[in-house]
């Protein structure tokens, strides 16, 4: 009896203390329920043969048959490999490059340059993939492209049929990705960076720390949480690729499949002629579940060493 009332008391005290926090959470939670959780009934579409006339709920269940098409192709290995490797490269290179940029931005003292740079580096992020495709094409066009005409020709090198040769594309796509996204990521890092307490640096300098020491002993530890979170979140998206980057930028050239085909482009191409909501839902479901497993593993790993940086 005593015990129970004690527990009750504790809960009561806790409630009294934390209720404002829960109230704060409410609006966002309601939005997430409407925008994300209610539509999740759609996940069952992956296991159904949808007939709109009878409605999604009453459509027939078809087990896993919607998933078969993903594996019923010789390309399955290629597209999974490409998806994972590209994402891995994007995570590693993207984050380290963005961090370097953020540090450089923080270092530059000339306010005008600092501010201009912050505006300008976001430019590529603002362009639509269609435009990026044109820009890339302006560089790589076999006939009039900048690279063939203005770089290779003066060097006496043969022009390259960029859109027919799959080999350079892992590099090209990585560069395009970095170019488009480093602005966004480095602005995120930069906002964390300038939030670092200046007295920490002062203390480090007092101890005789140089630039590199300041980075390793002050900047990086302060950035650690943000970086780890960024990486964990990216791991959750590891089965997804930017459709525009892998479909439009290579001009959907069939000859580049060995290095440009990813799960998303495959699903799009395979279902081009079939209006199969079930199959596309199945592909999305698979991508989500794989991402979820990986992210939970990554999170568990992180929280083992450093509880504070973990996502959950």
């Amino acid at each position: 009896m005593k015990n129970r009332s004690a527990t009750k008391n504790r809960i009561g005290r806790k409630l009294k203390r934390y209720w404002p926090l829960y109230v704060m959470l409410l609006p966002g939670a309601v939005y997430l329920i409407i925008n994300n959780y209610l539509p999740m009934f759609g996940l069952m579409i992956a296991f159904k043969k949808v007939n709109y006339e009878v409605g999604i709920f009453r459509s027939d269940w078809v087990g896993l048959s919607n998933f078969k098409f993903i594996f019923a192709t010789n390309d399955a290995f290629v597209m999974f490999r490409n998806t994972f490797l590209y994402n891995l490269a994007f995570i590693i290179l993207g984050n380290s490059f963005a961090l370097i940029v953020a540090i450089a931005l923080d270092t530059v003292r000339k306010r005008f340059l600092k501010n201009t740079a912050q505006v300008i580096i976001l430019l590529p992020y603002l362009l639509s993939m269609v435009i990026v495709t044109y820009v890339v094409f302006a560089f790589l066009s076999p006939g009039n492209g900048f690279v063939n005409n203005s770089l290779l020709a003066p060097l006496g090198m043969d022009p390259v049929e960029w859109y027919n040769d799959p080999r350079p594309w892992p590099v090209i796509l990585t560069i395009v990705y970095l170019w488009m996204n480093f602005g966004y990521t480095s602005i995120l890092y930069y906002s964390t960076l300038i939030g670092i307490d200046k007295s920490l640096y002062e203390a480090a300098v007092m101890d005789g720390a140089g630039v590199l020491k300041q980075i390793t002993y002050v900047t990086l530890p302060c950035m650690k949480n943000t970086m780890i979170i960024m990486i964990i979140l990216a791991v959750g998206r590891i089965c997804y690729t930017d459709f525009g980057l892998f479909y439009q930028v290579p001009m959907h050239s069939g000859m580049l499949y060995s290095t440009t085909q990813t799960i998303d482009t495959f699903v799009y191409r395979a279902l081009l002629e079939q209006n199969s909501i079930g199959r596309s839902a199945a592909a999305g479901f698979l991508q989500s579940v794989l991402g979820f497993i990986l992210v939970m593993a990554a999170n568990a790993l992180v929280s083992r060493f450093d509880k504070e940086s973990a996502l959950i």
Partner: peptide, 16 residues
């Protein structure tokens, strides 16, 4: 976090 990974897709969202 789950909302970042799973989504019901366009048609169900549109329904809601």
């Amino acid at each position: 976090f789950i909302t970042m990974l799973f989504n019901g897709g366009l048609v169900p969202t549109y329904f809601v």
